[in-house]
Write a protein that binds this DNA or RNA. Structure first.
Lengths: 231, 231
DNA sequence: CCAAGGTAAACGAACGATCGTTCATCGCGG
DNA sequence: CCGCGATGAACGATCGTTCGTTTACCTTGG
């Protein structure tokens, strides 16, 4: 049997990654000093260079280690059932992010600062996610959404799920309650499930009142769509 | 005659704020050097200290100048008609942010790094926004949402609108198209208007269909999150 | 009308602190 | 005894900020 934990080096490496992830998620790449990471895991800055080539390499290792499991999770979900119920995806993703609440912040930092890792992030992670979501929507097309709106719907879900984590600090101030507590995460998950039902299963109802079911909404003039004024 | 442009000082000050806003929104506070800001507006770092007390003061001035008009806009909207149609709010906010696309990024940076300005941001800006949204929802209660879900609904709209801007860089990579172009901003605005109709005007319908199929351990104390602090 | 004086703003130079990184050395387990 | 990993010291670069000086313009007294 290969001893699974016989390599203390990797153990140290993992510990460094943990501390770096915490600080990078909180302060971003530029706001985190190598010496701070070292101090956080009872090391010296020089020691980190025995395990990583430099600050940038450490940063990308943190991102890679964080993003990979999420990517795997989504692939697993789509493999099990292509028309995986939105419920299950929401449940699984929220549970995963609840266990790794720093990940959305890491990704949001990288997105905002537009680092070198951003294009890889978009192409190898977000693009398949969106494509997968779009094709899942095509399986069950009875929804108020036109096919060219599917990417917007999936992007909206990205915003809804990630926003709960990236906005958590300021929402915590507003509600005087931590949005990332187990209780509130569960609450948000149930809310998103309900929202999914409202969004997807909504009766076509009277879309005519609002949208003339034009297949090409690009030609509509926004200012002309004033469905109701106060009377 | 008082010459209207007899004060080049304020003009310079405004130019500094412009450059600082651009760099802070792109790289964050820690990632932006005072010398970079100075170079951007053809000045020397030393000159900036004739107009601002320091880097932190400049940063907060940028935030203040950016947030204030948005706050005013929302107050104006709620003043005109308390039950201001969600359509109008979406339209106005998206138009404003489209004209100031750096603002959501500034706020997101501040939220992520949790600077000193965050609590003021939450209390004086986001809190009234959410309270205003919640009370607007109470005016027209025919919607699938329970009253204790109103804060979640408003927060969701925050995520939907801000997300489009903060995620723009990575979404641009995915779709190979700038989400902040006039065309795509218009498209997103129309999408959000439609989503508002789907969310608000949807049949209250059968939540039983949803709750019954839910493997969720019943409804815990959903009323625990405080929609309003006072009691 | 001009000269003297005052003031705000821009600048080059420099400060100490901290940044990421390198390197020679040391300690310790296999 | 060998070798990996932790270390303190030190490097040049860059950070935010300060200082003394210069420049340009406005006011004011004669």
């Amino acid at each position: 049997m290969a001893r699974p934990e016989a390599r203390p080096g990797d153990q140290t490496r993992e510990r460094i990654l943990d501390c770096a992830e915490a600080l990078f998620a909180e302060r971003g790449l530029a706001g985190t000093a190598v010496r701070d990471i070292a101090r956080e895991c009872d090391l010296t800055a020089a020691s980190l260079y025995n395990h990583f080539e430099g600050k940038q390499a450490l940063y990308e290792a943190v991102l890679e280690r964080g993003v990979r499991p999420l990517l795997d999770l989504l692939q697993t979900l789509s493999a099990e059932s292509l028309d995986a119920a939105a419920d299950d995806v929401i449940e699984a993703v929220m549970a995963h992010l609840g266990r790794h609440p720093r990940l959305p912040r890491l990704i949001q930092h990288e997105t905002l600062t537009g680092g070198a890792y951003l294009s890889k992030l978009g192409r190898s992670w977000l693009r398949p996610l969106i494509e997968q979501g779009v094709s899942a929507m095509k399986v069950e097309p009875r929804s108020p959404w036109a096919e060219d709106e599917y990417p917007l719907v999936i992007s909206a879900w990205l915003h809804l799920i990630f926003g709960h984590f990236t906005m958590a600090p300021v929402l915590g101030v507003v509600f005087d309650d931590d949005p990332l507590s187990a209780e509130n995460l569960d609450r948000q998950t149930r809310f998103l499930r309900k929202l999914a039902h409202v969004m997807m299963k909504a009766r076509g109802a009277e879309p005519d009142e609002f949208d003339a079911s034009s297949p090409n909404p690009a030609e509509l003039d926004v200012s002309s769509l004033k469905p109701e004024g106060r009377s």
